[in-house]
Design a protein around this nucleic acid. Structure first.
Length: 176
DNA sequence: TCACGGATTCGT
DNA sequence: CGAATCCGTGAT
């Protein structure tokens, strides 16, 4: 069952946790499908969150996060990797969930590569898209581990330590 | 118009 | 530990 608009409009922390175990589906032009079971995510919430790109306010890049939940936010990092984010919450409340890993493929950069993401996915509607969407979890995770987000030391002592990384894979837990 | 640096990954 | 590689963002 494909997740609907109401699902994505919930708070980013709730959506992040509920996305664990959900199936990220990529339908390619040649008819093949890549189905990934989401195993690790991170929440980015509001302009106050110094780890969130929206802490810089509205810019052409962050604009999509101010939309109603259910859209895709992708951006190029280190000139090489397209990272996949799911916009959540209500209009004018910038929030997004970063998809960091799946049972099949682990690593935000690797996910983007496997899904052949590019700038054309910016703003894609996950509720109506024919090439990317997310399906409800069949099996809910037994346990959710809460950890600090990765790679945002620049966000300062508080925001870099908030436990907004959620994972189902105990063996994938790592420092920094 | 310019310089900086990043929600990463891989190889040395 | 450093290179790869590019563009959004803020300063000039």
């Amino acid at each position: 069952m494909q997740l609907n608009s109401d699902f994505y409009q919930q708070d980013v922390i709730s959506v992040a946790k509920m996305l664990l175990g959900a199936i990220l589906v990529r339908q390619f032009d040649d008819g093949t499908q890549l189905r990934l079971t989401i195993s690790e995510v991170e929440a980015y919430k509001g302009e106050d969150d110094l780890g969130c790109h929206a802490s810089k306010g509205r810019t052409p890049r962050t604009e999509i996060m101010y939309c109603q939940g259910g859209k895709v936010y992708v951006y190029l990092i280190y000139g090489m990797y397209w990272l996949l984010n799911v916009v959540t919450g209500h209009k004018d409340h910038p929030e997004a969930v970063l998809i960091r890993g799946s049972k099949e493929i682990y690593g935000p950069g690797k996910i983007g590569k496997a899904l052949h993401l590019d700038k054309s996915f910016y703003g894609e509607n996950l509720c109506t898209s024919k090439r990317i969407w997310i399906e409800k979890a069949i099996n809910k995770p037994e346990k959710i581990y809460e950890l600090p987000r990765v790679g945002i030391d620049y966000a300062g002592p508080h925001w870099s330590k908030v436990l907004w990384r959620f994972t189902t894979e105990e063996e994938k837990i790592r420092k920094k």
